[in-house]
Amino acid sequence: MSERIFGIFLLLVSAAGIYIGWDLKAPISYEPVGPRAFPLLVFTLLGICSLGLMLSKRPATEWAPSPVLMRVGGMFLVVLAYALLFDKLGFVISTALMSVPLARLFGGNWKQSLIAGAGLGVVLFLLFDKLLDVVLPTGFWLKPLLG
């Protein structure tokens, strides 16, 4: 079932891709093949393959039981929030905030998770920003402290 739904989704994507791609024309053309040919080819083939996905008979996808899926979904949201706040809160705080719930999900108790969060935030910041010269966001709060 999930493959069929995915097939329908891909079919819609390819239809949209062809619709948008149709208008991709270069104002002045120097070459026989313009900017739209390749995308149109790809989306057309994708559309054909998505029909195949919708029609083919296959063993059903085995999804994890729903409590597990909830946890995976929760983890996705935590990482998404991490991505959103990474720049604003700075690396140390955002990493600590992300690490605690992730550590909890992976079987750490509260004490372990808090240690993991604080430790990873600080240690990785020092490692990358100070030792390896990879510039990380400090966030609005750390900048004045670092001078």
């Binding site: 991490y82 990493t95 992300m98 992730l102 992976f106 750490g108 935030g121 510039v135």
Partner: peptide
């Protein structure tokens, strides 16, 4: 333990992505 490894990998991955354009 995974409760250190996984958040660590997640953080390092983000650092990798951030390093490209910030």
């Amino acid at each position: 333990p995974n409760w250190v490894l996984v958040p660590g990998v997640a953080a390092v991955s983000m650092v990798g992505v951030y390093a490209v354009h910030g």
